[in-house]
Design a binder for these strands. Structure first.
Lengths: 148, 148
DNA sequence: TATTGTTATACTCTATAACTATA
DNA sequence: TATAGTTATAGAGTATAACAATA
């Protein structure tokens, strides 16, 4: 029953994640958006959403919350005035630093559950294979993962 | 970003699962309940729910649907009249057979994505470690996984 | 015509509190 | 008092359709 183990594992990881980052009042989806903007600043909204496997319709509300907290902002693109490019604010950059530090504590707990960092690496390789991700793509790009 | 890979992998697996079992009009949660009842017939409702990591409050509606389709039934226990024991109906047993056959096709697709059955085994071992499951418990018992 | 961002909406899954009947 | 099942409700996450502005 791989499916249900994946689900339980995901819930466990997210629960630990949520507890780790509760003091910053940030949810997993918001974390992933901020991390993605930090990693690929200036990308347009739909591109960031697709990288995270979030429908662009659902991304709007998520981004509204992040923007109203002053952590990131939308900028109208000059070349294509339909699109918004996404950027961290300076406050957002400080926030991402704090967030990353707490996230490392969370990751250490996961590593200790798994019995060593080499097991985390193995797990990530297997998940990437399942997801059809190339290893060099493995920093968050979903590549060909079906969106619908 | 283990957390998000786990989530994407879980969504991918569930999507493939859902497509595989669409002809039976059954959802992952219903599948897991029927499989658990088939594996542990006569267990009481709350026990089955806990094994699956489903809150007993949410289990009620799920079980209502399964019961109204005639696939499984609640029976009042003689010794403790507060509790219900769960059993497949004979139609439910036939259903579980069909369901299991379709599920194997789904599993084969997952195995081929992973590049071999030995990789599936490795993945399951790692997930069990993350979940804190003993290997002999690995047929579905969530053991000490926090419920709240 | 097609795409970007958006709004509205609906469905599933998850969580908590409070009730009832039994123990 | 405590437990098993239930009801009601609320919050996330996810999905689709349709619209305005722009290409």
């Amino acid at each position: 029953m791989l499916d249900f183990k994946l689900r339980r594992a995901q819930l466990l990881a997210f629960q630990d994640f949520s507890e780790s980052l509760a003091q910053l009042k940030i949810r997993p989806a918001e974390f992933s958006v901020l991390a993605m903007i930090a990693q690929h600043p200036g990308q347009k909204q739909t591109t960031i959403a697709e990288k995270l496997g979030i429908k662009r319709a659902n991304f709007v509300f998520l981004m509204d919350g992040i923007e109203s907290r002053g952590l990131a902002e939308r900028r109208k693109e000059k070349n294509d005035r339909r699109s918004h490019s996404l950027h961290l604010t300076s406050e957002g950059e400080r926030f991402v630093e704090q967030m990353t530090a707490l996230w490392r504590e969370h990751e250490n707990r996961i590593v200790s559950r798994l019995g060593g960092r080499e097991n985390l690496d193995r797990l990530i390789v297997l998940l990437d294979q399942l997801l059809g991700l190339d290893r060099e793509d493995s920093d968050g790009k979903p590549a060909r993962l079906a969106q619908s």
